[in-house]
Each structure stands twice: as structure tokens, then as C-alpha cells.
Design a protein around this nucleic acid. Structure first.
Lengths: 211, 211
DNA sequence: TAGATTGTTAATCGATTAACAATC
DNA sequence: TAGATTGTTAATCGATTAACAATC
């Protein structure tokens, strides 16, 4: 199995989604053209992307087995074996993420929240425990959690980030609008709303210009 | 002014953020190397990206004027003239976005929310009005809003999307995990949590493998 | 069999990086 | 002046697309 490109990796989850839709619709086999049409991509690109992750070949004339493809992609993306995550910052966004049912489809389960503002040592949100931040290290170690989600104000984000790493977290998903510094052996993904809005607002201004 | 690349566009907001940090720290001039170091990029790339959007040249030996660069980038990204947005789906995520103070830095202001679940015709959330969805078309027209944000369950997302377009919305920011179909003259940006998690989880598994 | 669709190699396109002259 | 830093042209790298043989 070859290494796949960064771009391919970003497309895989949308393939997975489309394949699940197709299965829902009762399709057992699907051609690259059908997938491509749903996603505004080219069939060639879809085939090449699939080739990078699938264990079995597609059949000429029939296409790809939907179930097998779903299985292969989920496996490749690590969405099969669910990993636990904790979240720091139980404000509005934190609560929203704790209640977001879709993460289980992506192999992630938020098992606890942490916050400074809890005078009490323990609260509950969306059926999940919320602890005082001073319990962080303790609980992360005990549960062996690898993923930490940051939803604190940007002023505290770096500090929380350092804390998470010290507690043993290896992957950080950051929703605060700052560029966090982490060592090379820590995975970091910034959920960058500004970047999304830049793309959207640029496209919008082009559209408005052409009318 | 040349057209800039898609990749450059995605980097611009992080430059802007870094420049604002630098201004905060009292810097009047900055070199491409300093910016590059903060963002783990190469100075050459930073210079090329800047060249695509800035109106004035940098000075050899001194670097770029921080304020001018901030101005040029904000202008280029359309973050200066604030555009109004409405949001459909005032659940946990919708509420979180309505209360998110940072959007004003990106030239976006959420002016109203819509939901089906309001038996009453009018409510309030984070100091902003929340109307019944049947008021959508009316209010979008009246305010001349161009941007619509979708935070409804995925089952209703396409339906809401169609509704927004019919009401005159030209740019859609979609948080529901579905691939929405829109005509060519509508800007769409899917905020794809699954793609982010794919990247993060892949990096994590590499890290865990190497130890 | 004929036709549709796959998988792969080669060609093209676009973005990054290297090299270097210009200049404050 | 010497040294640091810019801006740009050319070289490299990586990803997409085109072409086409293989095959069900």
C-alpha cells in the first residue's frame, strides 16, 4: 500500500459519507462515476484515491462493492476503533461538541470535560462528567486518553495546550483562534474558522461582482 | 494584482492573525523570516504569499510594515466591510456560533437566528432575535443578508439550503455533515469536522506507531 | 461478443523551493 | 561599505488529468 497524498486524505471522509448514503439507498455496487458526480470530482481522481486505500480491486463493468469500500476506508482512517477524547473549556462551544452525536461515526468519543469555573469538583453536561481542571492530569492518566480538544478563550489556549501535553495527551484539536506551539511528537489540528470564512467570503465577492 | 493560489488564500488568515499578535507586541516592522518561524513555514513562501496581496513593497533590511500589511490583508479578504449573516438551527451549535465574539474580526456579523421549534414567533439568544423559520424569506429580503449558516440536523440540511437560496442568500456555510447541492452561482463552504478528525487521527496513529 | 469500467503509466498542470540580482 | 532582506525568475516537486490496455 502506497502512501496517499494529503489531498486524498482530506477527500476520504467525504467518500465515506457518500458511500454510506449509497448503502442507505440500497446500492450494493457503485462506479467511480457515480461517486464523482455526487461530489463534483472526476472519476479518474476517485479511482486513484480509492486505489490508495482499498484492499480489494473494483470489478470492471460493475464497479466497487459499497460495503467493502466502507470497511476499508473506515479502517484506513482509524474510524473503526473508537478513541477517547477529553475536552477543556465547557462553554457554549464545548457543550455543543459534547452533545454532538456524530463523533462516534468518526471513531471519537468525548468521555469528559474540564473547566476552571466549576467551584464544585464535579458537574454533568450531556450525560458526561465535567471536572475541575486540576483533576486533568489525574484522569487523563487513569483513562489513557490520547486526544484533547481545546475550546477555551484564546488567551488561555496555549497554557491549556501545555497542560494537556504534560498530562500525556498526544493529539490536540484546537478551536481557539491561535497558532499553538507543540513539540514534533504531538499531533495538532487547528479548526480554523477564519480560513473557512476567507474562502467563503472570497467566493461570495466574486459572485457579487459578476452580476 | 495577480490571482493568488487556493493554498495562499488558506494561509492568509493565519498571517493576519500573526501580524495582529506582532502589532500587539509593539512591532512596527517584521521580516518574512519572523513570520515564517511563528507559523512553521519558509520565508520564501511567506514573501511570495505577501507579494500576491500587498499594495506596498517591503523594505530590504527592515522588512514589512505591520500595519500596512494588516490593512492590505484585511482588505483583500473582505474582512473590513462587515457582512451580515443569518443562522438556521438554534440548537447547541447554533447558539455557540451566535455567541462567538470572534466573527467580527473576520468581517461577519450574525444578525438573526431561525428555528422550527419556536412555537412563539420571536425569541432571543445572545442578544439576537430568533424567528420562526417561516419568517426567513421575509427577513432575508428586508435586511439584504447574503450569508447563511446552517446548523440543523443533517436530515433537514438540504431542505434548509434550498430555502436559503430561494430567499436570496448567496453564500452558505454548512456545519451539517452532508454534501449539499447548490447551483454554480452560490458559494458554499462545508465545515467538515470529519476531514479534520481524519487528518488528526492519521497523524496520531503515526505518532503512536513510532514509540 | 461488445461495451462499460477499472487500474496504471505518461503528460500536464500548479504550487513550492532554490538561486540570485536588486536595494536599503 | 557590508550585510540583511526583498522580489522574481528558473528548477523542482507533487498532484491532477489524459490516454489506454486489461478485463469482467
Amino acid at each position: 500500500m502506497e502512501g496517499i497524498s494529503k489531498e486524498t486524505l482530506l477527500r476520504l471522509p467525504t467518500y465515506l459519507r457518500t458511500l454510506k448514503e449509497l448503502r442507505e439507498e440500497g446500492e450494493e455496487y457503485v462506479s467511480s462515476t457515480v461517486i464523482a458526480n455526487r461530489l463534483n470530482l472526476s472519476p479518474i481522481q476517485v479511482r486513484k484515491d480509492i486505489a490508495g486505500v482499498s484492499s480489494t480491486a473494483g470489478k470492471p463493468k460493475t464497479g466497487f462493492n459499497v460495503n467493502e469500500l466502507i470497511e476499508d476506508m473506515s479502517e484506513f482512517l482509524g474510524f473503526n476503533d473508537s478513541s477517547q477524547a477529553i475536552i477543556v473549556g465547557v462553554g457554549q462551544l464545548g457543550k455543543a461538541l459534547m452533545g454532538y452525536g456524530n463523533f462516534k461515526n468518526y471513531g471519537v468519543e468525548i468521555v469528559a470535560g474540564f473547566d476552571t469555573n466549576t467551584e464544585i469538583d464535579f458537574a454533568e453536561e450531556n450525560g458526561k462528567p465535567v471536572y475541575n481542571i486540576n483533576k486533568l492530569s489525574n484522569i487523563v492518566h487513569r483513562l489513557g486518553v490520547h486526544i484533547g480538544i481545546i475550546t477555551v478563550p484564546k488567551e488561555n489556549a496555549q497554557e491549556v495546550c501545555d497542560l494537556l501535553i504534560k498530562a500525556g495527551i498526544r493529539a490536540i484539536w484546537n478551536f481557539a483562534p491561535v497558532n499553538l506551539k507543540v513539540p514534533d511528537n504531538i499531533a495538532i489540528k487547528n479548526e480554523d474558522m477564519a480560513a473557512s470564512l476567507a474562502v467563503l467570503s472570497k467566493r461570495l465577492s466574486e459572485i457579487l461582482k459578476n452580476e
